[in-house]
């Protein structure tokens, strides 16, 4: 899919959190992946699998324990604060809860203008004009910039967050469960908007989601995470139509299908995902990925 060098390359990224006496959560463990230009890579998995931590570590909202994140040829994992700030403009993040990520006491236009001012892209009337453009681009009336977050619906607020993320003209937008809290009809509209913006602006998305049906709609490639590691990664059709790893298969089998005629009998299982907490001196076994088809990598299973 991606011609030439990828936009982002993550190499052996690890993020560990200490918890209590000598134990460590291996939230992200030796993750390597690439996101091509203009491509959507979806990262799927269940809660606690490390997908959100991966996203946050990539843009250094968490400091990585080890590993590299190369953006546009520059390793940002070792950059100092000032240099990092410049590169931050190239990657933006949208969170799940648009209400929590907007200041309730400020007009939403100010929230969108803020990145423009911080990164000295525009100021004064010029900034206002750019904010108006961004509002139009995400399907909001430019007049709405003077309103406050509580005057917007959930879908509109998420559009404001998208406009804010686009203000710095990023190349990579990380969507961390960005549509999960929305009603299904609004969710579909926001997804369509994101796809439109991608083709207009050539954006790359890292789309973090637990919803496989949404992921199937909008991604080019898919990575499946389990206990901090990628167990399968490949083109969308390979993952959805020819899943190789048992966890991927289980995940796909579990998705309820919106068709009563396709109802399946479910085995009455009770097993759950083990904990990613490891005692000091122990660590998870590193899984080796092997290529089963071009671009389709699967972890070996014991």
């Amino acid at each position: 899919m991606s011609a030439g060098t990828p936009l982002v390359e993550v190499r052996d990224l690890c993020k560990h959190f200490p918890v209590g006496a000598g134990a460590t959560v291996h939230a992200v463990e030796n993750v390597s992946l690439q996101v091509g230009r203009g491509e959507t890579l979806a990262v799927v998995g269940e809660s606690g699998c490390g997908k959100s931590t991966l996203a946050h570590t990539m843009i250094r909202l968490h400091e990585p324990t080890s590993g590299q994140v190369v953006l546009d040829g520059v390793d940002i994992s070792g950059l100092g604060n000032r240099a990092l700030r410049e590169h931050r403009a190239k990657m933006q993040i949208i969170f799940q809860d648009p209400f929590a990520s907007l200041d309730p006491r400020r007009p939403v236009g100010r929230a969108v203008a803020e990145p423009l001012l911080i990164h000295k892209i525009a100021k004064g009337p010029d900034a206002d004009e750019q904010v108006a453009d961004l509002f139009t681009r995400v399907g909001l009336e430019p007049d709405m910039m003077r309103q406050f977050p509580h005057q917007f619906s959930g879908g509109q607020r998420q559009r404001v967050c998208i406009a804010r993320a686009l203000a710095t003209r990023p190349e990579l937008v990380i969507a961390d469960e960005a549509v999960s809290a929305l009603d299904v009809s609004i969710q579909a509209q926001v997804i369509n908007l994101m796809m439109e913006l991608q083709s207009e602006l050539g954006l790359s998305y890292l789309f973090i989601s637990h919803d496989l049906a949404v992921v199937e709609r909008m991604s080019h490639r898919v990575a499946v995470m389990y206990l901090g590691q990628i167990v399968e990664i490949g083109p969308r059709s390979a993952i959805f139509e020819n899943p190789q790893h048992s966890y991927t298969q289980r995940l796909l089998d579990a998705v309820p299908i919106a068709d009563p005629r396709a109802r399946r009998d479910r085995p009455l299982l009770t097993d759950e995902i083990p904990s990613p907490v490891w005692a000091a001196g122990t660590s998870p076994e590193r899984v080796e990925l092997r290529e089963v088809a071009p671009g389709h990598l699967v972890a070996a299973e014991g």
């Binding site: 959507t40 579909a188 919803d211 991604s219 080019h220 059709s237 959805f240 139509e241 919106a258």
Partner: peptide, 27 residues
């Protein structure tokens, strides 16, 4: 009809190589 059109259904993208937007029904 509008509600169902915006429901993502697993398997609905089979055989397509590129992502595709929802075909929404105006309501």
């Amino acid at each position: 009809q509008a509600l169902l059109a915006s429901v993502p259904r697993l398997g609905s993208m089979q055989g397509r190589s590129e992502p595709a937007p929802f075909e929404l029904v105006e309501y």
